[in-house]
Write a protein that binds this DNA or RNA. Sequence first.
RNA 1: AAAGCAGGUCGUCUUAUCGCUUUGUUCAAAACAAAGAGGAAAGUCCGGACACCAAAGAGUAGCAUAGCGGAUAACAUCCGUCGUCACGUUUAAAUGUGAAAGGACCAGUGCAACAGAAAGAAUGUACAGUGAGGCUGUAGUGAAAUCAGGUAAACUCUAUGCGGUGCAAUGCUAAAUAGGUUGGAGUGCUGUUUUUCAGAUAAGAGUUACUCGCUCAAUUCCAAUGGGUAAGCAGCUAAAGUUACAGGGUAACCUGUAACGCAGAUAAAUGAUAAGAGUUCUGAAACUUUCAGAAUACAGAAUCCGGCUUACAGACCUGCUUUUUUU
RNA 2: UGACCCAUAGUGUAAUGGUAGCACUCCGGUUUUUGGUACCGUCAGUCAAGGUUCGAAUCCUUGUGGGUCAA
Length: 122
Amino acid sequence: MQSTFKKEEKLKKKKLIGQLFARGRSLSAFPVKLIYLQTDHDSHYKIQAGVSVSKRNFKKAVDRNRIKRLLREVYRKNKYLIYEFEHTKKHIFMFIYVGKKEETYAVLEEKMKQLINKFLQL
RNA sequence: AAAGCAGGUCGUCUUAUCGCUUUGUUCAAAACAAAGAGGAAAGUCCGGACACCAAAGAGUAGCAUAGCGGAUAACAUCCGUCGUCACGUUUAAAUGUGAAAGGACCAGUGCAACAGAAAGAAUGUACAGUGAGGCUGUAGUGAAAUCAGGUAAACUCUAUGCGGUGCAAUGCUAAAUAGGUUGGAGUGCUGUUUUUCAGAUAAGAGUUACUCGCUCAAUUCCAAUGGGUAAGCAGCUAAAGUUACAGGGUAACCUGUAACGCAGAUAAAUGAUAAGAGUUCUGAAACUUUCAGAAUACAGAAUCCGGCUUACAGACCUGCUUUUUUU
RNA sequence: UGACCCAUAGUGUAAUGGUAGCACUCCGGUUUUUGGUACCGUCAGUCAAGGUUCGAAUCCUUGUGGGUCAA
């Protein structure tokens, strides 16, 4: 399958994000935390995902952008793991970076695989 | 040649694979093509453009600026120039560099710790000058000691300028109900016996801090209009535009011609991985090349421009100063 | 994104441009068999840099950190 991550696949609606933080459940693989919720949304993709980095931990916009780009990249490369096993239900995801130091691409990719495996075991 | 200071310019590149945003082509899915961060995009310290507010008016208050001349859409910015101060050179005259704070204490008010006889109605002590009164000088404290004193980054005065709010401004799109807004009619207050007609007192609320001024009005019915609900679209990028050349001007800058058409996201695109190259530093071999290691900055558009300020690996250019070497 | 505010010992708060105070805390001592209470004493600060001034917590400029409001 294609490793794309387009506008329609991103989590953007403020209402959905509000629901996600109010009722969603979480999994963690430090320094990345996943908040997920099963819900109906308009997109024809099965999963809408977003990423978030706290301004408290990274004051500079350059650092925040860099980490968000890395998180999007590792999700894009590894999301096929979910699509292979999950066919019916629709979910929304939010990946939050809770660490205080920047990590390399290789480390984040490993953590992302751990997170997805944890999610699929549920 | 090296070091230091000041100013200016630039501020990594190539290939492969996988992706993102916008635009264009194709009926569509998708594919292909083109374009895609900065000198500070930052701080938000000034100045504008643009939009809305007729409850936007007038005055006061308030705020800002401050030699002179010019540039500009405008400015607290920039350029030129005079003065002052600091530092350097010099016996001196003079000269070089740097500085946002450079109107007025002959309008008024205030302030000056400690020290000192005395700090703003001055005039004490000692010594010297003179015959004496008195006057002058010196000593002493202090940043400042009598003179139209100092101080306005003290209040203040003078001159000039400033309406307010900011793109989360503002406009548009969407079914029904309630509410909102606008218009009309009736009731109600005053004048009148009644209808017609005419009027809006007192008191209150609102507005830019205050004053003047201005605006509003209780309730029922009918009609029209309209769009909050974290939504979408417009505003949104062609602009006081960029580059080159020529001319004018000491300069800031201006004028003309030609070419270019140069990000537009919105939980927020401009990326990731791998390989290589470049630059600098260090070490080793070697004697001007090779090998190894390290570093490769500050930082990410959010309505748009002109400045200022702050951050910045490294490279280059210009000027000045010092040291050394050669002639 | 835009518009604003604040900063004084560890904490809370004062200070006309003229010696930076006060209270609590901490630490030491006295009292007590010991602890507490009470009493006495010490330490500790103007967010940073530059400027104006004879002299700056205070006035001016720039930065740093923290906070508030607007859909």
